[in-house]
Design a protein around this nucleic acid. Structure first.
Length: 508
DNA sequence: TTCCGACAGTGGGGTCGCAAT
DNA sequence: ATTGCGACCCCACTATCGGAA
């Protein structure tokens, strides 16, 4: 199969807004792909690469060569070249990559260049990724989509699952099992504004657990071999020796656990997320990193214990297996209750202890990996500030033509000016985008370039956020975490906006 | 007919390691 | 020595489609 076939299908998928039509286009292509090309086709058309990443990003794709007129590149040719690009290493590798990318693109037509460039930048923008591809695979192979999802949960890599479905149907999919040492797709959580609201949704007693502000880990143990994976199934075993040792010391020699790893301060309170993140990312001198910033771990689920797969069991039973096989100090603190007041108290305690909040979990739901099922619901406290819009950036994609991304400032009583604390594009409806674009253009004042419009600091906007972090990027030395717009405050003037001192007091 | 679950898109701040400058 | 880049860690929110109710 040729790359142009995929490029054409992708363009057709993008052109139709109806999901069923997208599924139709994708299924049609999957119907004519050869078995040995299926993984590549599924990966590309769901926005992924068989190589996962190849060290090429937007900067390497800035100026592409002239396109050719004849489309001849096959999927295998492109895939081989991407593998060779990925394999470059050491001094000179970056320019070697760039040369190879240029050569590759010089052999492609315009539509192929557009498709591959978007794919490599991780911006396919065809309105179809894994979720739609699952349905397309189901349609093309005549298999229920639930079977595809189940296999994806266990295998964690859709191209492999899709190729199996196309080649061997339901039987091939049912052959996928939880394999110790190979990560499964992690279960994710929805969110609610309060424990009370979360409990109402679950109806009946539920487990409420601390939400630890660290890095998600999935730990596999088979005999003496321990492997640790992140939420995106990256292998970080070498970076977290504490986890390897702790798991290696347990009596059970066959385990798959789900949990969180975090750096705690000496007083036992959590270090800022930045500290944990930096520690987990450290690869070159793990020993010294470990001495200065030791990691602790909290497990909250057991997917396999001593030969028994637990994914399909109710939450309460998996929890019992966890408690029976992992010492209490390694288990996330939890409370089982159906009383809202008890739950809210537990939540308040978690937050007072420095944690992110809680996750409310159904006692009945299976480990529904990869789907944001209603089984887990996270609850976090929300801070708000009234800040001033300093500038706005033009949006892209469906936000093209709208001023989208806001620069936010807090009032500085010392100077009478404003100190930028970060940006946000979240929480804006199309109506609000239209309104603010018009308003900002009327307020435009100061340096303006092709993507930023500076405005007179006159608009006050109420911003929700999760916390204040240390920042080397912004002049105040702090930045908001997960900032989003709640509403504009036309009733407020900039001199009534919150001050940098208020923000500083919130920094941990 | 209305409601709501699932998905994709649109970007946010931070860190590390490496190659280039 | 510093900077730019890629890859990841954490993520919230709205619009939309289409099946469920």
């Amino acid at each position: 199969m040729l790359l142009i076939d995929l490029a054409r299908t992708s363009a057709a998928v993008a052109a139709d807004s109806a999901r069923l039509a997208k599924i139709g286009h994708l299924a049609e292509l999957l119907g004519r792909v050869k078995p040995d090309e299926a993984e590549i086709a599924i990966a590309y058309l769901s926005g992924e690469l068989p190589q996962r990443q190849i060290g090429v990003g937007w900067a390497s794709l800035k100026d592409l060569p002239q396109p050719r007129l004849a489309a001849t590149a096959t999927l295998h040719q492109v895939d081989d070249l991407l593998s060779r690009i990925k394999a470059q290493a050491g001094p000179g590798s970056q320019s070697a990559r760039k040369t190879m990318v240029t050569e590759l693109f010089a052999s492609l037509t315009g539509p192929e260049q557009t498709f591959l460039s978007r794919l490599l930048r991780g911006e396919l923008r065809q309105g179809a990724l894994d979720g739609v591809m699952i349905e397309a695979i189901a349609k093309a192979s005549g298999v229920p989509s639930a079977e595809v999802r189940r296999a994806l949960t266990l295998r964690g890599w859709l191209p492999a699952v899709g190729a199996a479905a196309l080649g061997g149907g339901v039987e091939a999919l049912r052959a996928f099992r939880l394999e110790v040492g190979r990560p499964v797709s992690p279960m994710l959580a929805q969110s609610a504004t309060s424990v009370t609201a979360a409990l109402e949704r679950l109806d009946g007693p539920a487990a409420i657990e601390w939400k630890i502000d660290g890095v998600r880990i999935q730990v596999h143990r088979s005999g003496d071999t321990v492997s640790v994976f992140t939420r995106t199934l990256d292998d970080i075993t070498r970076q977290v020796p504490e986890v390897v040792e702790a798991i290696g010391a347990l009596p059970s020699r066959d385990l798959v656990l789900d949990g969180e790893v975090i750096a705690l301060r000496e007083d036992g309170r959590p270090a800022p997320f930045q500290v944990t993140s930096g520690r987990v990312a450290s690869r070159t001198d793990v020993d010294s990193a470990r001495r200065t910033t030791p990691l602790s771990m909290f497990f909250f689920d057991a997917l396999r214990v001593d030969g028994a797969d637990l994914l399909d069991l109710p939450g309460a039973e998996r929890q019992a297996a966890l408690a029976a096989n992992v010492p209490a100090e390694l288990v996330t603190p939890r409370l089982v209750t159906d009383e809202a007041t008890a739950g809210e108290t537990f939540f308040a305690d978690a937050v007072r202890s420095g944690h992110e909040g809680v996750v409310v979990k159904s006692l009945h739901s299976p480990y529904a990996a990869g789907r944001r099922g209603a089984g887990w619901i996270k609850v976090k406290p929300r801070h708000t500030l009234d800040l001033v819009v300093l500038a706005a950036e033009w949006g892209s994609g469906r936000r093209e033509g709208w001023l989208s991304n806001l620069h936010l400032g807090a009032r500085d009583p010392e100077t009478g000016g404003f100190v930028m604390l970060g940006k946000t594009f979240k929480g804006l409806t199309d109506e609000l985008l239209t309104w603010q674009t018009e308003r900002f253009l009327a307020l435009a004042d100061g340096p303006t370039d092709s993507w930023t419009v500076t405005v007179r600091p006159e608009l006050v906007v109420e911003i929700a956020f999760d916390g204040v972090q240390r920042s080397s990027r912004y002049p105040g030395g702090m930045a908001l975490r997960f900032a989003r717009v709640l509403r504009y405050r036309p009733d407020k003037t900039p001199d009534q906006a919150d001050t940098v001192d208020t923000v500083r007091a919130l920094m941990i």
